Computed example of a mutant assay.
Amino acid sequence: MSLRYYLDEAQNRWRKARFFKQADAILHTPVVTCASAGPMVLSMVHHRDVLTYLLAIKSFARALPPSKVVVVADPTITPDDRKVLQQHVPGIEIRDAAEFRRPGVPVGGTWERLMAIACLSQDHYVIQLDADTVTLADVSEVRECFVQNVSFTIGTGDLQLPVPVGAAARWARGMMKGLAQPHVQLLCEAQVCAAAAAGDERKHYVRGCSGFAGFARQAISEADVVALSERMQAVLGEAWSRWGTEQFSSNYLIANAPGAVVLPHPMYTTPNRMGPYTVFVHFIGSQRFTSDAYLMALRNHLTSARAS
């Protein structure tokens, strides 16, 4: 590996250390206040994510107060973690991940999160909020989706709108050319028409991100998730248990929900594509500490929270 690689890694570690040195300050900001009418906000939280999750939920709740907050607790969550979450999010519902495991569906890789959404969205509009997100400003597009009861996903640089599954599969096969080991999401997308849609070319797919997604009431069911999983498992075998298959599934299910929308990009985006109109950022792992953007978002939230 080049000297540039090692220098970049050193800078990333330094930025990460600076971020977490200041992240404790989130424990001294106001608790989350829920509203009588609002979406349910659900997140899967790991022990290492507790502080960043509090930044995610507190910044989001300032823009769009939820009616209820649910955490699907990774097995690493400790009793002390639960106390911290309960202190900062009064009324929070903490559910163990194992509660949402089902036959025919992979274990781990955030699959329990998707199954929890399928279960809880029968009675609630559910917003899936990753622990590495920050809401910077008003999220009027998300509020409108909730009011209209339509599903949404955050867009990426590819396939900004839902497209027919046949076109999505052809796009994925083209992207895979020349790759010795394509990412599992591409493997799934290449089979989206044949397997996920069972050959029904009227179905759609969108290359969104499951890190921030809205699920309309009764838009999906547990049976939908299990059936999709079983169809893909039959084609992909062991690969279907890899990290990334849940994101593919979330994308497919949302793309086929009535009236589903893709949030405008780059208003809702990743740190490498932030601009002056960005209102929501998903600090995905590969880009989390490649700049000071995460630290700046933390500092801005702390300043505004203290002033309120």
Score class of each variant (00 low, 15 high):
Thr303Asp: 14
Ala23Lys: 04
Asn149Trp: 02
Pro264Arg: 06
Thr278Cys: 03
His28Gln: 14
Thr290Tyr: 03
Lys177Phe: 08
Ala37His: 13
Gly214Met: 00
Leu51Thr: 08
Val165Met: 06
Arg207Phe: 15
Trp111Pro: 06
Gln191Thr: 06
Ser140Cys: 03
Asn251Glu: 03
Pro65Leu: 08
Ile94Glu: 02
Lys203Ser: 10
Phe212Ala: 01
Ala190Met: 11
Met44Ser: 13
Val192His: 10
Ser221Gln: 06
Ser67Gln: 12
Thr278Asn: 04
Asn300Cys: 10
Arg202Met: 05
Thr290His: 09
Thr245Asp: 06
Asp49Gln: 13
Glu141Gly: 00
Leu129Gln: 04
Ser43Ile: 05
Asp8Ser: 14
Ala257Arg: 01
Asn12Met: 12
His183Thr: 08
Thr110Leu: 06
Ala35Glu: 07
Gly237Asp: 09
Ala219Met: 08
Val69Asn: 01
Val71Asn: 04
Ile284Pro: 02
Ala168Phe: 11
Ala131Thr: 14
Ala118Ser: 13
Tyr125Glu: 04
Ala169Tyr: 06
Thr135Arg: 01
Ile117Trp: 02
Arg62Tyr: 04
Leu120Ile: 10
Val150Leu: 00
Ala305Tyr: 05
Val70Gln: 04
Tyr5Lys: 14
Leu55Lys: 02
Val84Ser: 01
Gly211Cys: 07
Phe60Lys: 01
Ile117Cys: 10
Gln87Ala: 15
Thr278Trp: 00
Ala307Arg: 15
Ser250Thr: 15
Asp96Pro: 14
Arg207Ser: 09
Pro266Gln: 05
Ala23Leu: 09
Glu189Cys: 12
Asp123Trp: 12
Ser241Phe: 05
Tyr6Gly: 07
Glu141Val: 00
Leu187Phe: 07
Asp81Met: 13
Phe19Tyr: 15
Thr76Cys: 15
Asp24Ala: 13
Ala172Gly: 10
Val31Ile: 13
Gln148Ser: 11
Asp158Ala: 15
Leu236Ile: 08
Phe152Trp: 03
Ala257Lys: 02
Ala260Arg: 02
Ser59Trp: 00
Tyr205Cys: 07
Leu161Ser: 14
His88Thr: 08
Gly259His: 05
Met1Arg: 12
Val281His: 01
Gln128Arg: 07
Met44Tyr: 08
Ala10Tyr: 12
Leu3Val: 14
Leu64His: 01
Phe152Gln: 00
Val192Thr: 15
Arg306Cys: 11
Trp14Ala: 11
Lys16Asn: 09
Thr269Trp: 00
Met267Val: 06
Val107Arg: 13
Ala169Asn: 09
Val142Arg: 00
Ala227Cys: 12
